[in-house]
């Protein structure tokens, strides 16, 4: 993971945790927001969850043990938070049933209003966003974040071989989809 200007974490002083979180947000909040978006596929939800994630970071900061980089640590919290959300009762009962109404044919390709495909580049994003979450996750972390498989394994708590398999499967899914479109 590219880490220029890593901030030093010193939690002995309670007052400066607020500053640390401020710094973390300045450095990583956009990255976290994009990461969260790939899981939840809704802009407002992504923003809400990102907010909660940084509050969580504040609460857990004393548990950061310097074994990983702070960015990896923040990502791990973010990913766990997203998965909790996707597993939540609210999401499964309310959001998913709202989604069903989206599956009228004309809208089926549209995930979020901001994500209507306009050109070739965007249609690739769209295709990725349409993948099942377990593939979307590894594709995003590997190709967009350019994280090593070992790091992905660490932050998602998924075995490295499983990740390799998922990447391979994701490539197949995408190729098939593109063949269909052509």
């Amino acid at each position: 993971m590219a880490e220029q200007g890593e901030i030093t974490i010193n939690v002995t002083n309670i007052e400066n945790t607020e500053q640390i979180i401020g710094q973390l947000m300045d450095d990583y909040s956009d990255d976290v927001l994009h990461l969260v978006f790939t899981y939840v596929r809704n802009q407002t939800t992504a923003e809400d969850l990102t907010q909660e994630i940084f509050i969580k970071c504040y609460e857990k900061l004393d548990q950061f043990n310097h074994q990983s980089s702070i960015k990896t640590w923040v990502y791990r919290i973010a990913i766990n938070h997203c998965k909790d959300y996707l597993r939540s009762w609210h999401y499964r009962k309310i959001i998913v049933s709202e989604r069903i109404s989206d599956y009228i044919p004309s809208k089926s390709k549209m995930i979020d209003e901001e994500f209507i495909s306009k050109n070739i580049a965007n249609s690739l994003t769209n295709a990725v966003m349409n993948l099942p979450v377990k593939y979307r996750e590894v594709v995003f972390l590997h190709y967009y974040e350019e994280l090593s498989l070992a790091t992905i394994s660490r932050i998602t708590a998924v075995n490295i071989n499983t990740i390799k398999t998922r990447l391979k499967r994701a490539r197949e899914l995408l190729k098939n989809q593109m063949k269909k479109e052509v």
Binding site: L33, F37, L124, T125, Y143, L174, K175
Partner: peptide, 26 residues
């Protein structure tokens, strides 16, 4: 097939950022 993904997504995420209001709320 994912070679262009970074470039493609970067473009899509343009302007999609965590606002100052959101940071202040945190």
């Amino acid at each position: 097939p994912f070679d262009n993904l970074k470039h493609s997504m970067k473009k899509d995420f343009e302007g999609f950022s965590f606002s100052e209001e959101r940071k202040n709320a945190v």
